[in-house]
Each structure stands twice: as C-alpha cells, then as structure tokens.
Amino acid sequence: MTLDPFTTAGLVGLSGALLGIGLFGIVTRRNFILLLVAIEIAINAAVLNFVYFAAFASNPSSGLNGQSAAIVVIGLAATEIAVGLAIVLALNRIRGSINVTEATALKL
C-alpha cells in the first residue's frame, strides 16, 4: 500500500473531520446519551491518529508507542462510558430526565 502526502493530508483531514463532528455534538446535543456518543466520536478521532502515525512511524519502537497509547486510550474511553452511563442512570432517577441543560446545580 502506498500513501503519498496527499493521502496523509486526507487521513489527518479524516480524523480532523471526526473530531469536528464530535465537538459539534458535544456542544450542541442536550441528551446525555448523545453527548456520550459525541465524546466517543472525538476520542476515536484521536485513536485513529495514533494508529495512523504508528503505521508510518520511522522506527518500530515508536510505532509500538503509538499502538500502546491507542490501547490505553480505548481502555480509558470504555471506562468513561461506564461512569457516564452511571451518571445517566443517577440523573434519570433524580430529575426524571437526561437533559443536561436541566442539571444546573453548578450555578453560583
């Protein structure tokens, strides 16, 4: 497989686009579950970058670095989903809704 600089731009563009979609979702969606989905998209954009640069690393050990980092990030993301869903359940029980704009207890 050959990838020239053009394709490189394309791939980084892909992860950039995914990150943009994720950020868009994070700031616009009010449903907590959608928020979690948007976060997952953003995180996956980052993981994709790790994997991509690992594949084209100039030496093997830094390639392993990239893949190892990707594994750690995937683990953390899975953890985050677990906690996030726990919050969803708690929020649902307390407020009867999972609309994040209604949880304004942080207000001064």
Binding site: M1, T2, L3, D4, P5, T8, A9, G10, V12, G13, S15, G16, A17, L19, G20, L23, F24, V27, T28, A54, A55, F56, A57, S58, P60, G63
Partner: peptide, 30 residues
C-alpha cells in the same frame, strides 16, 4: 455552543491542512 462549534470547525480544518502538508512519512505502513 454554536459559535464554539463554528470556530472549532474552522480551526480543525486549518490544523488538518497544516499537518497534512508535512511530507517525508514512509510510503508504506509498518
């Protein structure tokens, strides 16, 4: 949020172009 998302889209695009311009990566995946 809308303003932020708009800004983010612009900047992420700029980043993609900026980083994408970097040459010299090996031509085949390791």
């Amino acid at each position: 949020p809308i303003a932020a998302a708009g800004l983010a889209a612009v900047v992420v695009g700029a980043v993609a172009v900026e980083v994408g311009g970097v040459a010299g990566l090996p031509s085949s995946p390791q």
